[in-house]
């Protein structure tokens, strides 16, 4: 351009300012979201689901693991729930294992030794109230429902794996076929129809207890008011909603 009228700093700043205003307008109008989706006869504001595990009752049959795998098409080598076996030896060593293979059956352990104390501990997603996994999801695919269940939005998850790293309890994994994050959903598709989660349904000894914290007379509330219980890794500040009755100090 031959016209070298100088474009001084003031005009430049005014142009940038006008541009900012335009940006403001551009970000502003967002189509309002449609009204809350129909939840048919299930009202999620009326429930607050939680879970308790009675470690003294677990016999390590792993029926829960098999039931969960069948109910939710859990991929092989990954677990939405599992049962840990702790064997504390006379010298203080602790051996922990999981019946991870095939049909999930605990056999007599290969190594013998002087077992002083041994027990089973079922584990699952703790459905924390202040879940770290929800906090760290970069796209808003991990969320808490109003009835206290922590879920993953399979259609929105990008599979970055941040939530898997953030969970202190090892409850999450990346689904090898769907390539999204996956975890225990408390069988959301069952509990919203008044049924029990598959693991609770299959447990033969009543070691797994599921209930509604909003029901003060319900089984779960009663147990929590009567028994002593602990949480896993309470120092993480995640406020887990899975309460362990009779939790041993060796369990992390």
């Amino acid at each position: 351009m031959t016209d070298c009228k100088s474009f001084n700093r003031r005009e430049f700043i005014e142009l940038v300012g006008a541009g900012s205003g335009l940006l403001l307008v551009a970000c502003g109008p967002v189509p309002p979201p449609p009204g809350a989706q129909a939840k048919d006869d299930y009202d999620w504001t009326k429930h607050y689901w939680a879970y308790a595990v009675d470690t003294a009752k677990c016999i390590g049959c792993c029926a829960c693991m098999r039931a969960c795998r069948a109910e939710n098409d859990v991929p092989e080598q990954y677990f939405r729930t599992w049962v840990e076996r702790y064997r504390i030896m006379a010298g203080g060593e602790v051996h922990v294992d999981v019946a991870a293979k095939d049909d999930h059956v605990f056999e007599k352990p290969a190594e013998g030794g002087d077992v002083v104390k041994a027990f089973f501990v079922p584990k699952l997603c703790n459905h924390c109230e202040k879940s770290v996994c929800n906090q760290v999801c970069p796209v808003g695919a991990a969320y808490n429902t109003k009835d206290g269940v922590v879920l993953v939005d399979r259609k929105h998850c990008i599979g970055c794996g941040y939530c898997v790293q953030a969970c202190p309890y090892g409850s999450r994994y990346i689904h090898p076929q769907l390539h999204v994050a996956d975890k225990c959903t408390l069988c959301y598709h069952r509990i919203t129809k008044g049924m029990l989660p598959a693991c609770v349904h299959a447990c033969p000894t009543g070691a797994r207890i599921f209930g509604d914290l909003k029901d003060p007379k319900g089984e779960l509330s009663t147990i929590l008011n009567q028994r002593r219980f602990r949480l896993l890794k309470p120092e993480m500040g995640t406020h887990p909603k899975c309460y362990y009755l009779g939790l041993d100090r060796e369990v992390v």
Partner: peptide, 13 residues
């Protein structure tokens, strides 16, 4: 609509 996630996600779940 119900928090920082897709509003229809719980229904899909």
């Amino acid at each position: 609509a119900h928090g920082y996630f897709r509003g229809t996600a719980p229904t899909e779940a």
